[in-house]
Amino acid sequence: MFKNFIRILKFAFTDFLRNKGISLAAIFVLVVTVMLATCLLFFWGASDYLLLQIQNKIDITAYFKEEIQEQDIILVKDKISKSSFVKEVEYISKDQALEDFKRKYGENEVLAKALFEVGGNPFLPSLNIKTDGNPEQFKEVSDILAGENFAELIEKVDFSEKKDIINTVFSIRSSITKTGLVLGFVLIVIAIMVVFNTIKLTVSSLKEEISTMKIVGATNWFIRGPFIIQGAIYGFIAFVICFIISMMGFHFLSDKIYTILPGFNSFKYFISNIWIFILVQIIFGVGVGVISSFFAVRRHLKV
């Protein structure tokens, strides 16, 4: 068994080196497939990051009645914080809200004049609540705040005003995910078909050889083994090439991507997800190479 395995390995490496043209063609198409899978994975990650950034900017603000004491608001804050889907709750006092407004719009004369006309501090104390961004969760938080316990403390919750934006962002995110998956799937299937047909052509050129091997009594695995190992070698080399290309690509394009997607460092993203990238590249490289070889040889073994 072990002796046979060593022989199969020897045949695979010898044939790989002897048929350089065929090997290069197979590696080339595998590199294209693996790079396609890598790019799809990267774009999926980048778009997810972008939408999460937008989603994180969306929050619910509960404005409390003017006469409500700070300790009561803090009590509400503590209760809300306990909900599993609430990520962050920030208390903004009347004074803080005024300060924020001045800092933000202080230079705008019209707004400053309006504030002066109103006189005093027109702002209400509030709680700023952030969730994971799911519209259902926003609705739940909104329902809790509007419930019996808090209704008498709260002046208004601005959920309904933001509801449309939240739903739009969420639906964009889910449709990008769905479209990306479908588009990615179609592209990957096409790429796999190209790889399969290239390997099929290379194996077909050796069909007489395969038939001779059968005639002299070789078992199916003894014949098939070297082709499968060659498929794995093609895939592994394609993986190494793609890994180097993607690492260098993400490193050198990092600045350009940063200008398109502020805050997103492509190289850091690649490094922090390196095992996923390696896994995807190996699956698409070695996996596709091996499976294609397996099926390409199978049809010639019926001698």
């Binding site: 002897r18 001779t212 005639i215 009594g217």
Partner: peptide
Amino acid sequence: NNSDLQKIRRNIGGIHQDYKLLSN
């Protein structure tokens, strides 16, 4: 079955008109 046929083939030495050599 295929496995037994291969065993039988291993016990036959074939010299074919078209040689059937392994070109690679």
